[in-house]
Design a protein around this nucleic acid. Sequence first.
DNA 1: TCATAATTTGAATATAGATTCATTTTTTAG
DNA 2: CTAAAAAATGAATCTATATTCAAATTATGA
Lengths: 203, 203
Amino acid sequence: MVYRKTDKVEAKQQQRKNSILRAGKEMLAEEGYQKISIKGLAEKAGIATGTFYLYFTNKDKLVESIADEMYEQLIDEIRLERSKYASVFEKLQASMLVCVNLFAREKQLAKILLIQAPGISKILNFKLVNIEKELVRLVKIDLDELMEQGLIPGQDTLISACAFVGTFRQVIISWLREGRPQNLEKSFETLLGYNLRGLGKHD
Amino acid sequence: MVYRKTDKVEAKQQQRKNSILRAGKEMLAEEGYQKISIKGLAEKAGIATGTFYLYFTNKDKLVESIADEMYEQLIDEIRLERSKYASVFEKLQASMLVCVNLFAREKQLAKILLIQAPGISKILNFKLVNIEKELVRLVKIDLDELMEQGLIPGQDTLISACAFVGTFRQVIISWLREGRPQNLEKSFETLLGYNLRGLGKHD
DNA sequence: TCATAATTTGAATATAGATTCATTTTTTAG
DNA sequence: CTAAAAAATGAATCTATATTCAAATTATGA
């Protein structure tokens, strides 16, 4: 005979999966990929070593799940926020504001994406690089449109888009590593101004 | 009795050390830290596995040596180039031009510093982060001076310095990862212009 | 409550790869 | 050329940890 799992068990399992993900994120952010041992991870998540393998096929897959989750969280928030505005300038501004606010709010996510991601594994790196690519791509589309509308002068929008994203990235990294600027969200305006001047926005 | 090594042997050993460093850099740039096995490294360097340990105490120390070498190469070139100019604007420009040219010339070094570095190990990451810090620090000093001279308007120079460096970083990363822009050195002027406008440089 | 299914446990296994070291090869200097 | 010293070799050892699986625990439904 086959027993069906009850909602209570279903909920408990979901909770467990989440606590593994939570522990994984924490360790990834603080210690980096290599330092994650399944034994330590299990301990932090409050389960036995072997239990981990009932929820994830292996360590790489866990990290992949974390990456997927983050990718969706960031891109979804950006798309949502952009949809609220009509003008391209506002959309552009909204995109970066989402990043700054999200990273300020979820420092762990920022650390994984901006500090730990690169050296981890080819497959994971690939996923995480895509987030950055996607962001530059979105910004470039905005800049192309602004250029077409004559709101910014003619320029190589690939370079401008990289520059634009790069300023935010570097400030966020400085904030993560050194705690300067102290208040990330406050520096948003300053940074936006820098970039609008850089783009040569007509007054 | 103690035998003294001749110049010929000394030279051969130096050559060997270099070939280990060369192989290490290549593997670090292309595969990342984890993928370096001493056996594979030795093979690439044309030595036996055990020989590696006659030249470096362990894998971490090898990577540390590579980092040190790169740090010196970059910072020395910057200092040298800066010393050739009197005006702060020119020094600032020279600093970034050195980075762009060096990275364009030594793609491997760029990959290690900008792509592989972060996730490797705490100790190594620390060293490599310092290069970036040092660069931001230098730029900030320049900006403070420019502000004092009234050549740029009052601003938070920490943020501006991060933004400044960040633009270059992001363009270089795009060039490394995706081959766009095709010609890194050509985009220097564009990028410099973006930043000078961003800083609000008086005409 | 009970028999069976599903889940969890953690000690045991597997393995990858860093490091060592007995042996071999090369170098030195008389 | 030779004997001792230095350097190089690579198979064997050691280690760390990812993964497995037999046994224990917990859940299901009559």
